[in-house]
Design a protein around this nucleic acid. Structure first.
Length: 989
RNA sequence: GCCGGUGUGGCGGAAUUGGCAGACGCGACGGAUUCAAAAUCCGUUGGGGCUAAACACCCCGUGUGGGUUCGACUCCCACCACCGGCACCA
């Protein structure tokens, strides 16, 4: 009776399925135990691709499975579900090529993938499985869209509210409307000083025409239609995400030209949440690098808005000042020119007749190049003078206004004040066009010396006066902090102030003078939410004959995708023709909705793939609910986290990933880093809206996040640089390359042709994917699981080495042979009491493994189990304590083998329900311990002393050691350091 | 360019967070078992020196160079290499 995973594994998988071992009851369900603590552990659910999984994919799934099984054994109610994010391009592309409906492809791929996941022995609650493409699911995705559409963001409360309440506030006069459409709280008007150039004043809601009222309301919705610049690919007939456009402005698929064009698209007002999305990163327990990536992506900058009056009058309603945002208001006295983005609306207003031709040409050129192109071009500065001037409000200097494409319309006001002395970009530009460079911040002496260019002086004072006279003689801009100089007018002087103080002083002054005010800017843009695709969620929106937008009622949901056979996007050669999404060809019975005799057309775009993944973690709490997207009870139960107000973990060096999340939300969310700023940001945004509207109970969706590393693998290229299949490569002895990769002096070949070895992420494109089913067939799934966890730390990327698998396979074999007689099949267990040494080791192993579980240090936990098992090898019969402990420790990692042994040890299934073993602290102490002895920090000997020996006794024992005594001959002992239980160090001269 | 991460034997990695560097596994070498092989079991395995050999002993060693400390893979400073993110964001 040898260890035979091919027999054991399918049997226990069938057992778990029949017994519904991993089904998690909700509060109120049969079998629900309210006394237990709860834990929600979740994987980033996959897109069900046609090629199936390779061994890199399930690393995270196996890790969460181990965590979930461990938590169950520790007595938690564990929610551990799996589903599929199945809308998206690949199924649609496949449909275009083959005519097979995406629904069919998706169903097939999901079935295939579920089979693979089950063969990995993953203990999911499969009763909760769904796909984002299920009508029952996307009905609620549409419902959440309606929540967004029917809400506005109240800046005073810093939260979303129902849109009706905005109308009520305006109706009641609690809010007025500014001339730019901004909302104004009349109660807060006192002390308001209008910024120069803006027409002050407000209008009452009642003064607006009904049409104006409707448009105003629409402008405040969290989901809104707007004309935005998109990447439009005429040949493919669709907009593309930035990620789908290559650096040279062509489509990744098909290499067709792509250009920017304005299109009316659905947008989501994620920018309203910029501040909360940054601030609340402080309450979640995520890896710092991921938090940082989100912070950088959202891009908060503190600074000031400053108005620069134009020096010549402008016609009609046109503004007579240029507003800029700056993070360095302290350098305002050094602003020697201004730059507008080429698209800035003021350009056509202020350009003088003399400059018009040059400006027009520049604007046209800039327009033709996509934003992407502009960003990727060499940083050589270009620009044109408009002929117009503005006035620097602090010193009344008349400064020229240029246009240049290094200023982006999409950030701030699309215009900047240029301070060439203290900004690299402005410095380059000023140098190139001969604009003045005025120093207003004092650099350090070192900086002056390092950047003096060809100045002969080297005395600090001489350099300093040269810098004050003309900062352009130095070789770059000084962008660091320092004390201000040259910064005074009749009313205010910043001279001598530090950068931080100067920022505050000048901002106060600007505010008092009505010239500007402190401002916070974000890089984050609103989220473009329309796609010209078939395989996505339809919008619950109708368009009326006069262009009015009608949102459907909840009772109209779901808006199902119409049956179609042709999913191809419509190519168009006319860059100005409006795109016709595939749904434009849907049957009229779907497309047209008649209400009260009026013909409405459905919105023909669909939602982007991210929509479904923005809330799936909520649906898992209550996946079959037909009344709500999730019941309040289920949501409050599973998403509660620890919700403690306990102190943060300052000073804690290693975290416990398996405690309920302090902020609430999913307790442990595991996935790759690639979603750091996309899915993870979008989902947080949706969650916060649902939170504001009272639909969920926690401010954050994912309390704890863990990023697992990638599996890498060698790949091979032939002489032409073409990748060849890695499993066909052999070395000079004809051995498969995969078995000898790291042995020195190997030469590899493919079909007799020499190939070179490289290293990269495992996947289809490098032809180095390893199928988990193949490894399972050779070694068993338990071995594969164990190997993937044993390779190294979970968060690290690490190389796949087929050769190494035998190590853990031998371990499992040895466990089997230690406990089962291979001839008779009897268990080799004795009820005799274990030796004191073995007993202590059992307890020590429990301690080591348990500690490693908390830090997800599975590789080290496995090493501890191997050590314990190695001790059992020499025994004829293993004491029951050791056997049962080992089996239970192993259960989360190699669940099939553990189930089999647990049963053979005389227990009823399932070991998944067994208790995690406890260890006894008192069992861990040894009577005598060995201590290393150092002399002057170098190891010179070892002593064995009673564990409770005091410092003097230890020192005496150390001096008694022959080698130590030798070392000390002729030396005077200066100091003796005894570290309890660790070592003793004697300092002598 | 800016930001972040990682550097430990032939390979994957460990080190109770400032206390015996290299746990555990792979590979390699030697041996046992076997007609033989596979499988299994036992032993050795960071580099160098000394030694006929073993034991013992000595020196060096965690990317590089400095520093703090009785003591540094761990802390500080400077640098190098690789990986990742952002990239004219004012």
């Amino acid at each position: 009776m040898k260890y035979d995973p091919q027999d054991i594994e399918p049997r226990w998988q069938a057992h778990w399925a029949q017994q519904r071992t991993f089904a998690a009851p909700n509060p109120g369900d049969d079998g629900f135990d309210d006394a237990k603590p709860r834990f929600y552990v979740l994987d980033m659910f996959p897109y069900p691709s046609g090629v199936g999984l390779h061994v890199g994919h399930p690393v995270g799934y196996i890790a969460t499975d181990i965590a979930a099984r461990y938590q169950r054994m520790r007595g938690y109610n564990v929610l551990h579900p799996m589903g599929f994010d199945a809308f998206g391009l690949p199924a649609e592309q496949y449909a275009v090529e083959t005519g097979v409906h995406p629904r069919e492809t998706t169903r097939r791929n999901i079935d295939n993938m579920v089979g693979q996941l089950k063969r990995l022995g993953l203990g999911y609650d499969w009763d909760r499985r769904f796909s984002t493409t299920d009508t029952d699911y996307y009905k609620w995705t549409q419902w959440i869209f309606l929540q967004l559409y029917n809400s506005w963001f109240d800046p005073w409360r810093d939260a979303a509210r129902p849109i009706d309440e905005l109308e009520q506030l305006l109706e009641a006069g609690d809010l007025d409307v500014g001339f730019d459409g901004e909302l104004i709280d009349p109660g807060a008007m006192s002390g308001f000083e209008p910024i120069a150039g803006n027409a002050p004043g407000t209008r009452r809601w009642q003064e607006l025409a009904p049409d104006q009222q409707r448009r105003l309301i629409d402008e405040y919705r969290l989901a809104y239609l707007a004309e935005v610049d998109v990447n439009w690919c005429p040949a493919l007939g669709t907009v593309l995400a930035n990620e789908e456009v290559t650096a040279d402005g062509r489509s990744e698929r098909g290499n067709h030209p792509v250009h920017q064009r304005p299109l009316r698209q659905w947008m989501l007002r994620i920018t309203a949440y910029a501040e909360r999305l940054i601030d609340d990163l402080d309450i979640v327990d995520w890896p710092e690098p991921i938090k940082l990536m989100q912070r950088n992506w959202i891009g908060r900058s503190e600074g000031a808005h400053v108005e620069f009056p134009l020096d010549a009058p402008t016609p009609g309603d046109e503004p007579d000042a240029v507003g800029v945002f700056t993070t360095r208001p302290d350098t305002l006295f050094g602003a020697t020119y201004m730059v507008l983005a080429p698209e800035h609306p003021l350009v056509r207003v202020i350009t003088t007749a003399v400059q018009r031709q040059a400006v027009d040409r520049y604007v046209r050129d800039a327009d033709r190049r996509s934003e992407l192109e502009r960003q990727n071009e060499a940083r050589d500065k270009t620009g044109v003078f408009t002929g117009a001037h503005a006035v620097n409000p602090v010193n009344d200097d008349r400064i020229p206004i240029w246009i240049a494409d290094y200023v982006m319309m999409g950030y701030g006001t699309g215009a900047i004040m240029a301070v060439p002395a203290h900004d690299h970009r402005d410095f380059d530009f000023a140098r190139k066009f001969g604009l003045p460079i005025r120093a207003v911040v004092e650099p350090t002496d070192d900086w002056l010396r390092d950047h003096r260019a060809d100045l002969p002086e080297d005395a600090p004072d001489a350099l300093r006066s040269a810098y004050h006279a003309d900062a352009g003689r130095f070789d770059e801009a000084y962008t660091g902090p320092g004390r201000n100089v040259n910064s005074a007018n009749d009313e205010i002087s910043l001279d001598g102030e530090t950068t931080d103080d100067a920022k505050r002083s000048i901002t106060d002054w600007l505010h008092r003078k009505g010239l500007g005010e402190g401002q916070t800017q974000y890089k984050l843009r609103d989220w473009l939410f329309s796609r010209q695709r078939y395989w996505g969620e339809p919008f619950p929106i109708l368009h009326g004959p006069d262009g009015e937008i009608v949102a459907l009622d909840e009772s109209d949901l779901a808006v199902e995708l119409p049956e179609m056979t042709d999913f191809a996007p419509e190519p168009t050669d006319d860059p100005n023709a409006p795109p016709r999404p595939p749904l434009a060809r849907a049957p009229e019975s779907w497309r047209i909705v008649e209400r009260d005799g009026v013909r409405y057309e459905r919105e023909l775009n669909t939602m982007p793939q991210w929509a479904g993944s923005c809330w799936y973690y909520l649906r898992f709490c209550d996946p079959h609910n037909t009344e709500r997207f999730v019941s309040e009870q289920a949501e409050q139960y599973w998403m509660a986290g620890a919700m403690s107000n306990e102190d943060d973990d300052h000073g804690r060096t290693s975290r416990n990933w398996l405690e309920p999340a302090p902020s609430g939300g999913v307790d442990l969310y595991v996935g790759g880093v690639e979603h750091a700023v996309l899915h993870l940001l979008y989902a947080r945004f949706w969650h916060k809206v649902l939170y504001d509207l009272g639909h969920v109970s926690t401010p954050e969706p994912f309390g704890r996040l863990f990023n697992q590393g990638y599996i890498q693998a060698y790949c091979y290229r032939d002489a032409r640089g073409i990748v060849v299949p890695a499993d066909e490569v052999v070395d000079q002895d004809g051995k498969p390359a995969m078995d000898v990769q790291d042995q020195p002096n190997r030469r590899f070949s493919h079909n007799g042709q020499p190939v070179t070895q490289e290293y990269g992420k495992m996947g289809k494109s490098l032809k180095n994917a390893v199928n988990p089913d193949d490894i399972g067939a050779r070694f068993g799934t338990d071995t594969l699981r164990l190997y993937l966890m044993y390779m190294g730390p979970l968060e690290a990327s690490k190389p796949w080495n087929t050769r190494d698998i035998v190590g853990v396979h031998r371990f499992l074999n040895r466990v089997w042979r230690n406990l089962v007689d291979e001839d008779t099949g009897d268990t080799l267990v004795t009820d005799d009491h274990p030796s004191a040494d073995l007993e202590r080791n059992v307890h020590r192993t429990i301690q080591r493994v348990t500690r490693q579980m908390e830090s997800l240090g599975f590789n080290v936990a496995i090493a501890a189990m191997i050590e314990l098992n190695n001790e059992l090898v020499a025994m004829d019969r293993v004491p029951r304590l050791a056997a049962e402990t080992l089996v239970r420790l192993l259960a989360p990692f190699a669940p099939h083998l553990a189930e089999e042994l647990w049963q053979r040890l005389g227990h009823a299934p399932s070991v998944a329900d067994a208790d995690w073993p406890d260890y006894d602290e008192t069992m861990l102490v040894e009577e005598r311990i060995e201590l290393p002895v150092q002399v002057n920090g170098k190891l010179r000997g070892r002593i064995t002393v009673p564990a409770d020996a005091d410092d003097d006794a230890i020192e005496a024992a150390a001096r008694g050691d022959a080698k130590v005594a030798d070392e000390l001959v002729g030396k005077t002992v200066r100091k003796v350091i005894v570290v309890k239980g660790k070592l003793i160090n004697i300092v002598a001269q």
